[in-house]
Nucleic acid binder design. Structure first.
Lengths: 219, 219
DNA sequence: ATTATTATTTAGACAAATCTAAATAATTAA
DNA sequence: TTAATTATTTAGATTTGTCTAAATAATAAT
């Protein structure tokens, strides 16, 4: 299936919002892609025509098997480029998303596979998200919850679900990165804040707002 | 100056055809970009508006200082990616052009400079063409002639002026690559063929047709 | 079970980049 | 120096991806 860059971005966004097999609404997709619902409806018709999505008026969108395969290829390219930028070109964590957003649209299986090989066929990207292999097989992300809902005390950061520059810069400033181990000191319901402690650092207070984008698993 | 991918391709092509300061004709540009003269006229108006070219009806096209700067940035990115693909991902000589054609449009100075650094700030790309530095300074390609017009006997291959897959594959098959040293045994006028000898290889006969795309300099 | 609200779609328009066919300018040849 | 040829531009159309405003469907609230 030969898709334009715009179409690829739709497929990727649908994949992301589907999270398994949820039906994706026009509005949610418009919000995700920072566009208008009317534009989504237009594109939905095209993607249905190209058989990458199932779509019926007012019934929402899901990827076909073909569409899922395409999405996984895009995700694979994106995450491999992120690895490359961080590991080989010394970019920091929060800078790579936008660049990978462009690089991911160079569709060459050979390039993708060579890149993967060059990086040692990594299984997770710098944000902790799993990288699909050449056949589109993706390891289920390990059991993780957002920091605001964690019940264990000692945790390790596995991913960040909001790639906004502001959040990533904030985390950087607080020395919270992938693999950072932390301990929950207290969770204050009355002001929606969480007190955490990272080894060798002063105790930190963060909002639930931020915490819900930090994925962790017990350590 | 913020140019679209299409606009960047025009600027790059104009730079190539200008070769110093020649005026570029609508037809020549259309041929180079595999498009129609009418499309070139349309785009010329836009690029003039954006002040990257000088253009008057029926008078042809030249780059402005700004346009030249942009062209050199694109050329820089293109050639650095070619280096990366050949040196780091083990692509062969003739495969990299098309991929670099896409990668070159990711415009990030930081990425470009990091990539250059990572590659050891190379001065020439795998085709032997010089790579502009971060300021757009480009070393004049060393004195070279096409193989069919060379007068010296012992030569070294410095570049190939035709990036067609067929030619590059042919050269690959004959073990003619960048830096290959060769000797002219004979130049037969009557059938437009040239006999050459590469060390440790049987004598080879190639057509002038091919030879004129192989750039060499005396060694 | 109507009404109000929200979500989605349709209709019609626009910008970018291209095209074809026709018109016009520039160049070359007779 | 006219006529013929070639190069270039214009006019009008097309495709892709987007938009706004209006219409319609689905859902929630009274």
């Amino acid at each position: 299936m030969n898709l334009s860059v715009a179409e690829e971005n739709y497929v990727k966004a649908i994949y992301k919002l589907q999270e398994g097999d949820n039906v994706v609404s026009t509005n949610a997709l418009a919000y995700e892609l920072d566009t208008k619902p009317a534009s989504v409806t237009d594109m939905a018709k095209k993607l249905k025509e190209k058989q990458v999505i199932d779509y019926e008026k007012y019934k929402g969108i899901t990827l076909t098997a073909e569409g899922r395969k395409t999405a996984l290829q895009i995700v694979r390219r994106h995450r491999l480029w992120e690895c490359f930028l961080v590991e080989k070109l010394s970019f920091s964590w929060e800078e790579v998303h936008e660049l990978a957003e462009e690089l991911e649209h160079v569709r060459s299986e050979k390039l993708t596979n060579r890149l993967s090989e060059y990086l040692g066929n990594p299984l997770i990207d710098p944000h902790g998200d799993p990288i699909p292999d050449a056949n589109g097989k993706i390891t289920k992300p390990r059991p993780q919850t957002s920091l605001d809902q964690a019940n264990a005390k000692r945790l390790v950061v596995t991913a960040v679900t909001d790639q906004s520059v502001s959040l990533l810069a904030f985390l950087n400033a607080k020395s919270i990165k992938l693999g950072t181990q932390l301990e929950i000191i207290a969770h204050y319901e009355y002001d929606n804040s969480i007190e955490i402690k990272i080894k060798n650092q002063p105790t930190l207070t963060i909002s639930e707002q931020v915490a819900k984008h930090i994925m962790v698993r017990p350590v």
